[in-house]
Write a protein that binds this DNA or RNA. Structure first.
Length: 262
DNA sequence: CGATTATGATTAA
DNA sequence: TAATCCTAATCGC
């Protein structure tokens, strides 16, 4: 689940359900007992996302920094709030809802200064209004690295993960191994606008959907898992039926259609 | 019941 | 590049 859309959705839901009132914090699993104790009773001022990084600002000035990594989850449990299930590192709750965090790659209390330091290392976030698109474009035009590597590099664009990477390059008809600086201005512009469009859609849907319902002949809300993607982890291209190929780029596998992405 | 896998990132080599 | 961390669902035997 956790690409940028998931984290932005989380920030929005946390703001709606926990912000403005004192929060009870606990670590049922015990691995974040000290942190939970420091947060217990504080008021959440607001949650903020930058790419795949989540920050919760509390009225003490402390910041909870969470990164879900590959397997992390932050699940809502509505009243009547059940006992935590499994390895819950952190539970944040009020009378109406509990948010259970499990399997994060990062869960720590940091200062606003440290938050700034993390932000300064991250590239343009397509879901943020303050995204520095020009900076991202400059990194593309000045790099000979593969497009597939740059798109996944969080210091260039923050929020794209392995699924969106494959799907975005598919939709833009770009072969993942092309050098970043070979993209035309139009190609970069399309790549950026598709990124914004799809991450926004994913944030609203709570899942990654990149296919066009009209093209697929389906309704977006009730789309089978097999119908939601064009290339990622597929054998056959959802659009043209060609055999999907896999390359390792940027340290991770990327599936692409040699016919749609020459 | 053990092995495998997953939409991630950091550290070490 | 590889090893490592974190968890839970799924798959094969």
């Amino acid at each position: 689940m956790p690409e940028g859309h998931t984290i932005h959705r989380l920030a929005r839901l946390l703001n709606g359900s926990l912000a403005g009132k004192p929060v009870r914090a606990s670590s049922p699993q015990g691995r974040f007992a000290d942190g939970a104790e420091r947060l217990d009773g504080l008021t959440l001022l607001g949650a903020d996302a930058w790419g795949k990084y989540l920050f919760c600002n509390f009225d003490s000035g402390e910041v909870l920094h969470v990164h879900l990594g590959l397997i992390g989850k932050f699940r809502a449990r509505k009243a009547p709030i059940p006992d935590p299930v499994g390895a819950v590192r952190l539970r944040l709750q009020n009378g109406a809802i509990a948010w259970d965090l499990s399997g994060p790659t990062r869960c720590e209390i940091i200062s606003p200064i440290e938050q700034e330091q993390i932000w300064s290392r991250l590239g343009a976030d397509p879901l943020r209004s303050d995204a520095d698109v020009a900076a991202a474009r400059d990194k593309f035009t000045h790099s000979k690295r593969a497009v597939g590597a740059l798109v996944l590099d969080q210091s260039v664009v923050a929020g794209i993960g392995n699924v969106y990477r494959a799907e975005l390059l598919f939709l833009c008809g770009i072969h993942p191994a092309r050098p970043a600086n070979s993209l035309t201005e139009e190609e970069f512009a399309q790549l950026w606008s598709e990124t914004v469009r799809l991450l926004r859609l994913g944030e609203r849907m709570g899942r990654i959907v990149t296919t066009d319902p009209a093209e697929i002949g389906a309704t977006r809300s009730r789309m089978k898992a097999e119908e939601r993607l064009y290339a990622y982890h597929r054998q056959i291209c959802k659009r043209c039926g060609s055999g999907i190929e896999v390359l390792k780029i940027g340290g991770r596998p990327i599936w692409y259609c040699p016919s749609c992405q020459p």
